Amino acid sequence: TLFEALYDYEARTEDDLSFHKGEKFQILNSSEGDWWEVRSLTTGETGYIPSPYLAPV
């Protein structure tokens, strides 16, 4: 399942991933609570992002 960003987000740590509203992601790991490890389909980068900022496509 692909997810889309509902809002912009600016990374706060080196493990976070900055992204823009509308960017699409592949979920790599969603078992860590509200922070999911994802791969951006736009940039190819991986990192953690807050799951409340995402919605299924």
Rank of each mutant, 00 (worst) to 15 (best):
A11N: 05
H20D: 06
W36S: 02
E4I: 15
D16I: 11
L28G: 01
S51A: 14
G44H: 06
E10T: 14
I27F: 10
V38Q: 01
T43C: 02
P52D: 15
R12W: 08
D15W: 15
T46E: 09
L6E: 03
H20Y: 12
Y53E: 02
H20K: 15
W35I: 11
G33I: 11
P56G: 06
Y9G: 04
Y53G: 05
W36D: 01
F3T: 02
P50L: 13
H20G: 08
S30K: 13
L54W: 04
I27A: 04
F19Y: 06
Q26T: 10
G33E: 13
D8F: 03
W36Y: 07
F3M: 09
D8C: 08
F25G: 00
G44W: 06
S30Q: 12
F19P: 00
L41D: 05
E10L: 10
K21G: 02
P50C: 11
F25N: 01
E4C: 07
N29H: 08
E4W: 09
K24D: 01
Q26W: 13
G47M: 07
D16F: 13
S18H: 05
L54T: 04
K21F: 05
N29P: 02
G22A: 04
A5K: 00
G22R: 01
G33V: 11
T42Q: 11
G22P: 00
T43G: 02
T1M: 14
S18E: 03
G47R: 03
A55C: 07
G44D: 05
Y9H: 07
G33K: 12
K24R: 14
E23I: 02
W35Y: 12
P52G: 15
K21S: 06
E4T: 08
W35G: 04
L41I: 11
V38S: 01
F25R: 00
W36L: 06
P50Q: 12
A55D: 05
L17M: 14
I49Q: 00
S30F: 14
E14P: 13
A55T: 13
K24T: 09
T46K: 09
A5D: 00
R12F: 10
S51H: 08
T1H: 11
S31M: 13
L2Q: 07
T13C: 10
Y48C: 08
E4Y: 14
E32I: 12
D8Q: 03
S18C: 05
L41Q: 08
W36R: 01
S31L: 11
G47K: 03
K21D: 02
Q26A: 10
D34C: 14
L54Y: 03
G47Y: 05
T42C: 09
E32V: 11
V38Y: 02
T13I: 06
A11I: 02
K21V: 09
S51P: 10
W36C: 04
W35L: 10
S18Y: 04
D15Y: 15
N29R: 06
A5R: 00
L6V: 08
L28V: 08
G47L: 06
L54K: 04
F25K: 00
S40V: 07
R12T: 13
K24H: 11
T13S: 13
L41T: 08
Q26L: 14
F3H: 06
F3I: 03
T43D: 03
I49F: 01
S30C: 10
D16N: 11
G47I: 03
F3R: 02
N29F: 06
S30A: 12
D8E: 07
S18I: 04
D15S: 13
G47T: 03
E10H: 10
R12N: 12
